[in-house]
Amino acid sequence: MSNFEKLIEIKNLHVSVAETEILKGINLSIGEGEVHAIMGPNGSGKSTLANVIAGRPGYSVTSGDIVYKGDSILKVAPEIRARAGIFLAFQYPVELPGVRTWQFLKAAIDAIRKGNGQEELKIRDFDKLLEEKRQLMEMDPDLVRRSVNEGFSGGEKKRNEILQLALLDPSLALLDETDSGLDIDALRIVSHGVNIFKSPEKSILIVTHYQRILDYITPDYVHVLVDGKIVRSGDSSLAMELEEKGYDWVKDGAGEEVHP
């Protein structure tokens, strides 16, 4: 049993980008095994939240704290956060020309293992693991031999993100608009990957505009983010309600914050 109450606690988090405040006091706790969904209209700050947790440069936390596994991580480098089990599935996965997917994934898994005092993975073991995950994500075997994300379709890029999730096996998965731009088949494959990852020890934060992905991955809690604040929280039925009534419905009630 872990020695902290919640896997991650976000306390009154204020975040600015180039002097514009994007997040205006976020409070959110995610326990082990919980699935949370953050929903909100464009520009509400959803993606900012996921990126700030992962430590993306360019955001300044003006006040508040992010406590992960009992310690504040605000000053921790992104690769150290990753090694501690925070994984961000990017909304726009980056292309790495000339860097082969195989090489990149091996470097990542070894870095994380080394960070946790483990040996580097033997090439044969790694190949086996990678092949298993590749099949899970129904990816073309050729893709792992190509440069990372280069020339991948939008759907292939997103599947590659979830392949990495499966491979790196983090404690906390942040899925930043993973459903955007996916056709129905890709959405099914991606959701399947996430559901296999899901377990009592793993926590997931899904950032999404639409309720669609939540048909496949059922959240325990849904939070609605409007203009940098969580304006409403509830269970998965809130997502349905939102889909029906639109974001204007919660915007009207902005301010009355409900904690789960």
Binding site: A54, G55, R56, P57, A77, P78, E79, R81, A82, R83, F87, L88, F90, P93, V94, L96, P97, G98, V99, R100, Q103, F104, A107, A108, A111, I112, G115, S147, Q164, L168
Partner: peptide, 20 residues
Amino acid sequence: FYMRSRGIDLEAASRLIIYG
């Protein structure tokens, strides 16, 4: 940042980029 978010440190990320 993409590489660092996968646990790869700056030196290793830089090397991968240059080799790539």
